[in-house]
């Protein structure tokens, strides 16, 4: 199924997540997710609010572990119970809000230096030196935003689109096994969103990153990636491979959802945007 060799890179086995267990607020956010992601797959995940998309990304990123019995494996290594900061070696993430993925009071180059050492031990060498600065410039210049000439500007002075582009480069510069995109264009204006999306596609293709992208937008879910997953109430309803996805239209997607969920698809009620 993957674009590269058929090697399972990320394996999710029986992932469940229940919040506020045994209280009146109990919510089953993930209800037995099984998913194999192959090397160089670009999976788009779509689903309504509360479908469990973000919870799933949080489990992969190690923010909290799944319920007992669930397993998260990356490259045949069980990382289920590793602390969050150790997950960073395997997964880079771009958050929904640009301010989440960058540190406002650090300069662009300081942000980049933090990202460069993902998964490595940090020592008493200078965080920024000439060679690294060159590396940052060459990583930022393909964005075409001029950030490479503003390395000593604070991240706080950047616009949302610039900050999100910086976050994207930060998530990918040290080449983690998986790139997690958590509705990373949701807060940007349509034109900027399109630019950031194109940059994402460029970087993913160039670095051959295995990618999981969560989105509310069916059109984007169809246009990007080689696989599509639709989630609903903590379960995977639709899991389509490359061939199926190519022929897919929004109408098909709606129909597939209705079939699988067994309820009438109400656009406004499940908050998926078609445009």
């Amino acid at each position: 199924m993957g674009r590269g060799d058929d090697h399972i890179l990320l394996g999710l086995i029986d992932i469940r997540k229940v919040f506020s267990r045994r209280t009146i607020d109990e919510v089953t956010a993930l209800d037995g997710i099984n998913l194999d992601v192959y090397e160089q797959d670009f999976v788009t995940i779509i689903g309504s609010n509360g479908a469990g998309k973000s919870t799933l990304l949080n489990v992969i990123a190690g923010i909290y572990p799944p319920e007992r019995g669930g397993k998260v494996c990356v490259a045949d290594q069980d990382i289920t119970n590793m602390p969050e900061y150790k997950h960073a070696a395997y997964a880079g993430r771009v958050y929904q809000n640009p301010s989440e993925g960058t540190a406002a009071k650090l300069t662009i180059e300081e942000n980049m230096a933090m990202a460069l050492l993902r998964g490595q031990s940090r020592g008493l060498r200078a965080a920024i030196n000439k060679r690294r600065r060159e590396l940052f410039r060459s990583a930022l210049s393909p964005l075409g935003l001029g950030l490479e000439d503003r390395l000593s500007a604070y991240a706080a002075t950047l616009s949302g689109g610039q900050r999100q582009s910086l976050a994207l480069v930060m998530a990918t510069i040290s080449k983690p096994a998986i790139l997690l995109l958590d509705e990373h264009i949701a807060t940007l204006d349509p034109r900027t969103a399109e630019t950031v999306l194109e940059l994402t596609d460029m970087i993913v293709k160039r670095e051959r990153m295995t990618t999981i992208m969560v989105t509310h937008n069916m059109d984007i879910a169809l246009r990007y990636g080689n696989r599509l997953i639709m989630m609903h109430q903590g379960k995977i309803l639709v899991n389509m491979g490359e061939e199926e996805k190519k022929k897919l239209t929004i109408a098909d997607l709606v129909a597939a959802f209705e079939r699988a969920a067994g309820e009438e698809f109400k656009d406004d009620s499940i908050m998926l945007s078609q445009r």
């Binding site: 900061y85 406002a104 050492l117």
Partner: peptide
């Protein structure tokens, strides 16, 4: 740098492996 970043954006710092 990791120390300085921790007070600025803790979530990001953990997400970058520190």
């Amino acid at each position: 740098l990791a120390l300085r970043a921790s007070g600025d954006n803790e979530q990001m710092v953990r997400g970058l492996g520190s």
